[in-house]
Amino acid sequence: MGNPQYPALDERTLCALAVNVINTEAAAISALADRIDSNFAAGCRLILGCHGRVVVTGMGKSGHIGGKIASTLASTGTPAFFVNPGEACHGDLGMITRNDVVLALSNSGETAELLTILPLIKRLGIPLIAMTGNRLSTLARQSSIHLDTGVQQEACPLGLAPTSSTTAALAMGDALAVALLEARGFTREDFAFSHPGGSLGRRLLTFVRDIMHTGDDTPVIGLEASVRDALLEMTAKKLGMTAIVDGAGTIQGVFTDGDLRRLLEKAQDIHATPITAVMTRSCVTVEGSLLAAEAVRIMEQKRINALPVVENGRLIGAINMHDLLRAGVL
């Protein structure tokens, strides 16, 4: 039930308000493109030459945006952390060293807590990149490099709540992070090392050898086996297939659930039929050093659910879709 003290708004009005917010913020971000200039490039070079870390700071909503920017920088190859300027005034300023670069966010450029620590930053000779909406502000004028994130209007109809301005600052922070990522040659593998617990980390850091079945858990029979032997091995190992190897352990083929169904449709005697008569000789295999995500791609492309794992042609294990699912690779 609605609160009687608030006027009832119909669905169309509510949606129109939301669309106006999105359009206003989109325009604010779009306007930033014309301000990506030599100052932006100089900021990137300053950070790339930094031997310490990027210390991001800001109060209130700018502080929240600053925290996200610091996190994005850190996860994309640029060591960074966030310091609340209010706390910095009471001891946390010791977290900043002469080898660092400070990135300060303030839409007005006149935030009292930032201006309080500004002289100390300047005295230490620490480079300061300011991200403000007012290029004539104290913070902008005192900075080594200024990035203009000013907006024509906030999305808030009262023009009070930071909306477009915080969105613009966030976009500028992302632009910095991505430009630095590219400049450093940061790769997907580097990103995965920073996110080992995430799905991307698992996809990029998990190899077939990490999750494959080995030893007695590997479904395998010899060339002398019958289809009945293959069926018993597949049933025991529960991977939906068995590999067939010669006396040296070199894989010669595979026999799968699908092969068995096709065989039964022909009413062949599984006791008398040798496996060599019905096995798939040109079988698909993978090596243990292959990324598990690549094994998924191969299975999907070939429409198969299990793969023998080999090393120099010799069988060393097996893997199926359930293993990849349990490992979080799918």
Rank of each mutant, 00 (worst) to 15 (best):
A248I: 04
L290M: 15
G258D: 03
P274T: 13
I251C: 11
D257F: 10
E294Y: 10
I270R: 00
P274N: 06
I275F: 05
I275R: 03
A293R: 02
K302C: 04
T242G: 03
V286P: 12
R303Q: 10
T285S: 09
A248R: 11
A292V: 02
L264Q: 10
L264C: 07
G249H: 09
M241N: 01
L239M: 15
K266T: 04
L290H: 08
V245N: 01
L290Y: 13
F255Q: 07
V245T: 14
C283E: 01
G247W: 07
Q252S: 05
E287V: 11
R261T: 09
R303H: 00
L291E: 14
R297T: 01
Q268E: 11
K302I: 09
G240D: 12
A267F: 13
I275V: 13
G240K: 15
L263H: 07
V278W: 03
L239E: 06
R297D: 01
E265A: 12
E300Y: 07
A293F: 10
L290R: 13
T285V: 11
A267R: 15
A295L: 02
T276N: 00
R297G: 00
T242K: 03
Q301R: 04
S282V: 05
G288M: 02
L239N: 05
A243E: 06
G258C: 08
M279G: 11
M279R: 04
D246G: 00
E287L: 06
